[in-house]
Write a protein that binds this DNA or RNA. Structure first.
Lengths: 347, 347
DNA sequence: CTTTAGCACTCACTTCTGTAGAGTGCCAGC
DNA sequence: GCTGGCACTCTACAGAAGTGAGTGCTAAAG
């Protein structure tokens, strides 16, 4: 279905109004609040056409119109082409520059989620990279007590993870230090998977002459790496969940509760974000376009951040479907870029 | 003011009813639902007396009575003396035994908060010990990049903390390992404060012959310890915040939002719990007895957990003032004991 | 053919009113 | 001291009526 210029303008007017007030708007109010130079009856006809095209609905016969998801989708898609929208980016990029370097990358992600939620007044979510796929800068083992050790891994991007293991065999701290040194010297910058594979081929090659250290390092690493790689689905940083209380959209407690619980459980949100982690640039998911967001009136604006060519995680904003995309989209975009930039700087 | 047996029974009846239904109850309903063997008019007179004594109120002239904070206080205080209440503990102690050993003590606290909130359907909060006062089992330094290191401390109780430092001088990983070894060998089991002091006197004593290692260890530790001790207010583990959605008590969004935000900020909740960390056994704070809980209808049941004689943190339940104290109090009590027991076992 | 004004109609929201129900307070009698 | 009875109070609920914003349709004007 093709829309002429005027229809687009009317659609946009309805959406803008609904973004602001969350109230249905009628033809009369449109002629009053926006200057189209035509009467309300004309607007009425246009709105009727838009409804037929699936861009608008009305909740009941005598109510004003509200946008459908298709309407939002159209709005968002055309938004990307508009100049005014691109100009908007500049001022918002300034905001993203509030994000500054942190020793610990997870603090940076925390900052990011706070910034996003503060600026949008919606909920922000940021996933941290999975340790399984990270490139390791440093690995360290600490003996906590007999048969129990802790592994600390620091990724190149600056993410730290602690992990606990029960071992069949007790290993002294001294040996652990040696193993750590060995790994750090010869396997730095590789992924856990890579380390494991290299250790394995190493073992096969020099089967009879490998020294004691390598065997232990291998055993430990095999175990530790295996454990680290499975299950762990990375971390989720979130902020601004309570903003949903301020939205008139969600009067239903169940929906609010559902969202908060989903975010608390983290699992489903991480899956949601990671699913689209491959796609380039900012992605917008409107309402039921995504199963997780369901039919509860939520939308998601998400982008990925990276280090070099490597995508590390995703960050985004979850808000009501009637959120102000023209502000949120460039914000998410520049936040993602700023995070990438900052992670890059960590040498 | 003294209450006779019958008045106490009526008060208890009102409270039990209100705990269940959150609805005001009148004299007639009491005679129907409880068997006092007297007419409603008599109950009416008793209730009138109780109101005069400040144990009950009614929201408006022709509504039933509801307990005041003083009423709850009286109820809770007498509860501690009752046999039936103590018997209740046995079944609830079983629940607390669901808590099992975890390599990482913070996981245990996480489990605890989940258990408490699951069993009570209220919100659970658990504070972790401050690293500043913890006895250190192991300390490790990792060089992240030039002039930036990470310190990992493991306390005797099994709590791990990572901390980042920027240093004026760059130290090699090798030196850091030596320093770690040195500290772990000679200062294990002390608090950060203790380590610092001992290092200081050590330096003074053997001023001219201390070796290179000790100087570096001292410098680093002085810096690291100082940084670790200040500001850091420990961690807060929380669960079940969304349960407040299910309570009919809080129809006001602002109150819900306020509570969730307070818990998210953690600071004030930690202060609240730590304030009463010294007091022995279970403590109950009803409504405005505590500033944080304010006049929003919340109460707090809290107890401390320890390792040996040393109090490490506090755990508790935040619920509506009309919460079921006879279940929550013994639960918090036995959870605290179970956590203490499990932390003890960690050798 | 497009646009417009006018008109009848619809539906949610608000206000008002009456009633039922639960509760209180008080009093006289047991 | 306890109780039944009675008048009174206040909420919650339901129906009635009015209001306002909006729609769809139609006929006339541009």
């Amino acid at each position: 279905m093709q829309l002429d210029e005027r229809s687009k303008k009317v659609l946009k007017a309805v959406i803008l109004s609904y973004i602001k007030t969350a109230l249905p708007i009628g033809s009369r109010s449109i002629t009053e609040r926006f200057d189209f130079g035509v009467g309300s009856a004309t607007i009425r006809n246009i709105m009727s056409d838009l409804e037929e095209g699936g861009f608008l609905t009305h909740p009941h016969t005598s109510a004003g119109r509200i946008p459908t998801e298709k309407g939002y989708r159209f709005y968002v898609d055309t938004l990307f082409e508009e100049e005014a929208f691109l100009n908007n980016k500049n001022s918002i990029m300034m905001e993203a520059e509030q994000l500054v370097q942190r020793e610990d990358a997870s603090l940076l992600l925390q900052d990011t989620s706070r910034l996003l939620s503060d600026l949008t007044h919606y909920m922000a979510v940021v996933t941290a990279p999975k340790i399984a796929t990270a490139h390791i800068r440093h690995i360290e083992f600490i003996r906590l007590r007999a048969n129990c050790i802790m592994a600390i891994t620091v990724s190149e991007a600056g993410f730290v993870q602690n992990k606990f293991f029960d071992l069949a065999k007790d290993i002294s701290q001294k040996s652990l230090n040696d193993i750590s040194d060995y790994l750090n010297n010869f396997y730095q910058g590789m992924t856990l998977q890579g380390i494991r594979e290299k250790l394995m081929t190493q073992m096969e090659k020099i089967e009879d002459l490998y020294d004691h250290l390598q065997t232990e390092a291998f055993e430990l690493t095999k175990y530790a790496v295996g454990d680290m790689m499975e299950g762990e689905s990375g971390e989720l940083y979130t902020d601004g969940a309570t903003h949903i209380f301020d939205l008139p959209d969600f009067s239903d407690r169940k929906i609010m509760k559902g969202l908060l619980e989903a975010v608390k459980e983290k699992q489903s949100v991480i899956q949601l974000l990671d699913k689209y982690i491959g796609s380039k640039g900012v992605q917008v998911f409107i309402g039921s376009e995504n199963r997780f967001l369901g039919n509860h009136g939520f939308s998601l604006v998400v982008s990925q951040y990276k280090r070099g060519d490597r995508v590390l995680g995703a960050l985004g904003v979850i808000g009501p479907t009637r959120m102000d995309y023209s502000k949120v989209i460039p914000l998410v975009d520049s936040a993602a870029k700023q995070v990438s930039r900052l992670l890059e700087d960590l040498s």
